[in-house]
Computed example of a mutant assay.
Amino acid sequence: MLGGIAVYIISTFYWFSILKKFDLTKVYPLQSISYIVVLFFGYLMFKEPITKNTLVGTLIIVVGVFIITKQ
């Protein structure tokens, strides 16, 4: 429990330091990348199936993040 709290505190300070350097509208969509990471970790660690709908949804997220963050 304490380890989880410590990681949360560290990530909060890291997030604030990122927001000082970059625009929120550019950085916030990048959090959607976590959906992709979870998809692959779920497949590798828990042998969860990756369906066609999951892949299409993931592709939509990637394209959306790319469009938003592109300068």
Results as ranks from 00 to 15, higher is better:
M1N: 09
L2M: 04
L2I: 08
I5K: 01
V7P: 01
V7D: 00
Y8V: 07
I9A: 15
I10Q: 01
S11V: 05
S11C: 05
S11E: 14
F13E: 09
F13M: 08
Y14T: 15
Y14I: 15
Y14G: 05
W15P: 05
F16W: 07
I18K: 15
L19T: 03
K21N: 04
F22Q: 10
F22D: 02
L24F: 13
L24W: 11
L24C: 04
T25H: 14
T25E: 13
V27E: 02
V27Q: 09
Y28W: 02
P29A: 14
L30R: 05
Q31K: 01
Q31F: 12
Q31W: 14
S32F: 15
I33P: 04
I33G: 14
I33N: 02
S34H: 06
S34Q: 06
Y35W: 09
I36G: 06
I36N: 04
V37I: 15
V38G: 05
V38W: 08
V38F: 07
L39T: 13
F40M: 11
F41S: 13
F41W: 13
F41K: 03
F41E: 06
G42H: 00
G42W: 03
G42A: 01
Y43C: 05
L44G: 01
L44A: 12
L44I: 14
L44N: 13
L44H: 05
M45G: 00
F46G: 01
F46D: 14
K47M: 00
K47C: 05
K47D: 10
E48T: 08
P49Q: 07
I50H: 06
T51W: 00
T51H: 08
T51F: 08
T51M: 03
K52R: 12
K52M: 11
N53V: 06
N53T: 12
T54N: 06
T54W: 03
V56T: 11
V56L: 15
V56W: 04
G57D: 09
G57N: 10
T58L: 01
T58Y: 04
L59V: 13
I60D: 07
V62L: 15
V62E: 00
V62I: 14
V63D: 03
V63P: 07
G64K: 03
G64W: 05
G64S: 04
G64Y: 01
V65S: 04
F66E: 00
F66M: 11
I67F: 10
I67M: 09
I68M: 08
I68F: 09
T69Q: 11
T69Y: 07
K70Q: 11
Q71W: 07
